[in-house]
Amino acid sequence: MARTLQLRHSVLGLLMFASCMSTHAAFRCDTQGKVTYSDVACDGAVAMPATDLRPPATIKAEQDEARRRAAAEKVQLQQLEAARNKAEHAERKERLHASAVASAYRRKCETLAQRRKWATEDAATAPNRHVEKASRKARRIAEQYVLECES
C-alpha cells in the first residue's frame, strides 16, 4: 500500500513538473550569427518565441518528407488532370461524330424528300405513254423515303 502511494506521488510530481515546464516561454536568440535558447528575452539581440525546439535533424527529416509528399501529390495531380483532359477529348470527339452522323442523316432525308417531290411532279406531268413508268418511279422513291427517314 505504501509503495502504491509512493508511486502515485512520484507520477503526480512528474506530471506537475511537466505542466510547469510547458508554461514557461522559450526564446531563440540570434546574436551575431550565434543561436542560443533561453527562458528569458535576449538583451540587444533579436528575440523570437521558440515554437520548435526539436533537433534540427528531426526538422530537416520532416521537411524532406513534406517535400517528397508534395512532389508525389503534384505528380498525382498531373496524372488526374491528364486523365480528365483525355476523357474530355474523347467526349468532345464523340459529340462531333454524333453531330456529323445526324447532319449526314438529315441531308440524306432532305435529298430523298426532294427526289420524291420531283418524281411526284414528273408523274403528274408525264405524257400518257410514260405515266405508268413515272408513277412507279415516284412510288419507289416515296417508299425509300419512308423506309429511311420515317422509321
Rank of each mutant, 00 (worst) to 15 (best):
S38G: 04
T111V: 03
I59K: 11
G44F: 09
E121V: 03
S19K: 10
A25N: 09
S22P: 01
R8G: 11
Q78P: 01
K137Q: 12
A113H: 12
A47W: 07
K60N: 06
P49S: 04
A102K: 11
Y145K: 06
V11L: 15
L5M: 08
Q144A: 06
E132V: 08
A70D: 12
H24N: 04
K117G: 00
E121M: 05
E148W: 07
L112V: 05
R28V: 11
D43C: 00
A119C: 04
A98W: 10
G13Y: 15
Q32F: 05
D39I: 08
A104P: 02
V11C: 02
A126Y: 08
S103N: 12
A142Q: 14
N85Q: 14
L7Q: 13
V101M: 09
C20E: 14
K108Q: 14
A66G: 01
E94D: 09
T125N: 11
A41V: 15
S103D: 15
E65C: 00
R106K: 14
E148Q: 13
A50F: 04
A2S: 11
T51G: 12
L80F: 03
A102R: 14
R68K: 13
H24T: 07
A113M: 11
N85K: 11
S135D: 09
A83Y: 04
A66V: 03
A50T: 04
L5D: 12
C20W: 15
A104L: 09
E62R: 11
E150R: 14
R67M: 06
F17Q: 09
E62A: 04
K108N: 07
A70P: 02
R3K: 13
M1I: 12
V46R: 12
A2N: 14
E132I: 07
A123L: 06
A45E: 10
G33P: 03
D39P: 01
A90E: 15
R69Q: 15
R28T: 03
A50H: 04
A66C: 02
V40I: 07
Y145N: 02
L80N: 10
A134Y: 11
C20H: 11
R106C: 01
T58F: 10
